[in-house]
């Protein structure tokens, strides 16, 4: 075996090692979710279920957790995540267009503010936001939660979209203007399609922010029927710590949409990440 083959084999082995380490915990979660209890608590664990079963999924889906159907939590999570994506995407696009296309007073101040505000640990703000929402009587509502998530998603989204808007050649807009398109039409017909990849990238990030978030949801939402999926999972785990089958089934149901989403858009996301941020 010459040095080059040896190097190739070593690299590929390391690559497979990294792959296994990355994927294993998730596979173990899915595998546990399908195992009957005696296999889960067996003193010699096996990587795959010998007798796969749907019983843990059935338990979770039929409201075995807190008597509320899984689909109610799912609907709450979906409403919150989709609203956050839509609102923050629209507002961020408007603001990004302003900072990338116009020079105006306080533009620099605005950009520096966007950067600095992201340095503040979000967990630190849970106390004042709790008190403010309490005073506004929005504490136990999904709308209040969406408002908070939009607030956290916006600075990042504007910052990232700014690069995408700036990358659209101004000549295209000028050409549209010469052809008689007004600013609104130019925005929708020229700018929007060209920054779509950037919007996809920011949407993923704000979706995941909202879908995964636990602390604010846990602190603000007190009714089980308002709870989002992470709260359901936390509640379930804290209450029945060793009931791993249903817990892993619930975890799988929370995780798979995110992973599926990630893998479908990964190509676009990575290229968006590179185009928007690392190098232009």
């Amino acid at each position: 075996m010459n040095a080059r083959t040896f190097r190739r084999v070593a690299l590929n082995t390391a690559g497979i090692g990294v792959f296994v380490v990355s994927v294993f915990p998730v596979l173990w979660m899915i595998s546990t979710a399908f195992k009957p209890n005696q296999e889960i608590f067996s003193s010699t664990p096996h990587p795959l279920p010998a007798h796969p079963t749907w019983q843990h999924f059935a338990f979770v889906l039929n409201g075995g957790v807190a008597g509320v159907s899984f689909w109610d939590y799912f609907a709450n999570s979906a409403i919150v995540a989709v609203s956050t994506v839509a609102i923050s995407g629209l507002l961020a696009l408007l603001a990004a267009t302003a900072v990338a296309r116009f020079r105006f007073r306080f533009r620099t101040t605005f950009l520096v503010m966007l950067l600095v505000v992201q340095m503040v640990p979000a967990e630190a703000l849970v106390i004042p936001l709790f008190i403010d929402l309490k005073h506004l009587a929005m504490l136990n509502s999904l709308a209040g939660l969406v408002a908070v998530y939009v607030g956290f998603a916006l600075p990042f989204s504007i910052w990232m979209l700014r690069g995408f808007v700036a990358a659209v050649p101004r000549e295209l807009e000028e050409a549209a203007a010469i052809d008689g398109a007004g600013p609104v039409r130019t925005f929708f017909r020229v700018l929007l399609p060209l920054v779509a990849p950037g919007l996809v990238a920011t949407s993923i990030f704000s979706f995941i922010t909202a879908w995964n978030e636990l602390i604010f949801a846990y602190t603000f939402l007190k009714d089980q029927d308002k709870a989002t999926l992470p709260i359901m999972l936390q509640f379930f785990f804290a209450r029945s710590g060793n009931d791993w089958g249903p817990i892993m089934a619930a975890s799988t149901l929370l995780t798979l949409p995110v992973i599926a989403f990630f893998l479908t858009v990964q190509r676009r996301m990575v290229s968006g990440l590179v185009a928007g941020a690392v190098k232009g």
Partner: peptide, 16 residues
């Protein structure tokens, strides 16, 4: 709180 979300926001190098 944004978790992976703020991932890229400050990766530099791009001259706007």
């Amino acid at each position: 709180m944004l978790d992976t979300a703020h991932v890229v926001r400050r990766v530099p190098g791009r001259k706007s």
